[in-house]
């Protein structure tokens, strides 16, 4: 029916099933305590509920109550409830911003101007032939299932914006073509959080971080493992990726420990949200 009715739509059906039954199967597996310990790992106990929440198959209130039922004390559930809070927060932001959600919320804190970022998604990324096993792997999962782990979304977005110098909106629009949970609120504002147009500093990562939370699975088989663009310390990457901000005016020499704020670059963020 879908092929007949929507001949223009691309791709195949996702293995993730829609509907209440599929949603209930997932919600029964919620384990707040395990979630808190493992959610940053690609194979962690994340819920997979986002497509159902996005489309109202489950309300956030139902998921909240399911979390409460899965825990014995508040500490065990606070992480997962916090993440549900993120969804609620982005939705409220969207309500307030309306169509302005498509705009940069603030200036980039990367030292680069908004106009320096490419507005086109490069073909090698769209086609999944960048030669980076991790990024090509994430692209494959995104395109074939319509879902990606939060950490994979963060790495991919950071790589696109900070390494490939693609404007967040080009990447965000591409995500929305594929994500079953695709939602300009969570999606655009997360991309902006990473890009630094909705945060105090850009988010980036390095190979150690990706290897650790992906169980090293990509690096083992990666043809670029010996010239990996992420294989550096945070300090090295910071120098490479972000432009030094030019002082607004010449700052007179100061005593040590009193560097002027206007010349200092904001510390980039390596923490997840």
């Amino acid at each position: 029916m879908l092929e007949q009715e929507f001949p223009g739509a691309s791709g195949a059906i996702s293995p993730i099933r829609g509907g209440r039954q599929a949603a209930e199967q997932q919600i029964r597996k919620i384990d707040g305590k395990r979630y808190a310990r493992s959610r940053d790992h690609l194979n962690g106990a994340v819920t997979g509920l986002s497509p159902y929440i996005r489309h109202g198959v489950l309300t956030l209130a139902e998921v909240r109550d399911a979390v409460f039922q899965s825990i014995n004390n508040r500490d065990d559930g606070s992480k997962l409830i916090n993440e549900l809070g993120w969804r609620d927060f982005w939705q409220r932001m969207w309500q307030e911003l309306g169509d302005h959600i498509d705009d940069d919320q603030e200036v980039f804190k990367t030292g680069h101007s908004a106009s320096s970022y490419s507005r086109e998604l490069p073909d090698d990324i769209r086609d999944g032939c960048t030669g980076l096993a991790c990024m090509d792997g994430f692209r494959e999962e995104l395109v074939s299932t319509g879902w990606l782990h939060n950490h994979a979304r963060m790495w991919m977005a950071a790589w696109l914006v900070h390494w490939r110098h693609v404007h967040w909106k080009a990447g965000a629009d591409w995500f929305l073509e594929h994500l079953l949970d695709g939602d300009p609120a969570s999606n655009h504002l997360s991309w902006q959080w990473i890009a630094s147009t909705f945060s105090h500093k850009p988010y980036f990562f390095n190979r150690d971080n990706l290897e650790r939370y992906s169980g090293g699975n990509f690096c083992k088989s990666c043809s670029s493992a010996n010239h990996c663009p992420f294989d550096a310390s945070y300090e090295q990457l910071e120098t490479k990726l972000f432009a030094q901000r030019v002082p607004i005016r010449d700052v007179p020499a100061r005593r040590q420990g009193h560097r002027s704020k206007s010349t200092a670059r904001p510390n980039p963020s390596t923490q997840r949200f």
Binding site: L2, A12, G18, G19, R20, H55, H178, L180
Partner: peptide, 21 residues
């Protein structure tokens, strides 16, 4: 919306399955 945002068949299939319920 489907045309202008290039919504993929995965998403349409998911919505369709939700509607069937």
């Amino acid at each position: 919306w489907i045309d202008s945002k290039h919504i993929s068949r995965k998403r349409l299939g998911f919505l369709y399955e939700c509607c069937l319920d």
